[in-house]
Amino acid sequence: MEEYFFQCPHCWEEISMLFDTSVKSQTYIEDCEVCCNPIQIEIGFTNGELTILEINNIDQ
């Protein structure tokens, strides 16, 4: 697990999340720890290196 920092697409605050670097790719929804709005996160790793990080807001 590694911690990555990025900006919330709703409130623009910098937040961090732990990602499992052993999983090649995944897409999931997580709430922002600051504003509690849902964020769609797409991540991808190649040889343990982050190669894809897409953060999108989900309209409510």
Rank of each mutant, 00 (worst) to 15 (best):
N37C: 13
Q40P: 01
Q40C: 11
E3R: 02
C8P: 03
C35E: 10
E30L: 13
I15Q: 04
C11S: 12
C8Y: 04
E49R: 08
M1F: 01
I41H: 01
Q7L: 06
L50E: 13
Q60P: 09
I39Y: 00
E42L: 14
N47W: 04
F6A: 06
D31G: 14
V34G: 10
Q40H: 11
I29W: 04
I55H: 01
L50T: 06
E49P: 02
M1W: 02
N56C: 10
Q60F: 12
I15E: 02
D59I: 15
C35N: 09
S16H: 07
T51Q: 10
S25D: 15
T27F: 05
I39C: 01
T27R: 13
E49K: 12
L18Q: 07
F5A: 08
I43M: 05
I15S: 05
I52D: 06
I55C: 11
C32E: 03
T21M: 10
T21G: 11
L50A: 11
C8E: 08
P9L: 05
H10F: 08
D20C: 02
E49A: 14
C32Q: 06
Q40K: 15
T51V: 12
Y28N: 12
L50F: 07
E42K: 12
N37D: 13
I58T: 09
M17P: 00
I58K: 07
F19L: 10
K24L: 13
P9S: 09
F45V: 00
Y4V: 07
I29H: 08
G44M: 02
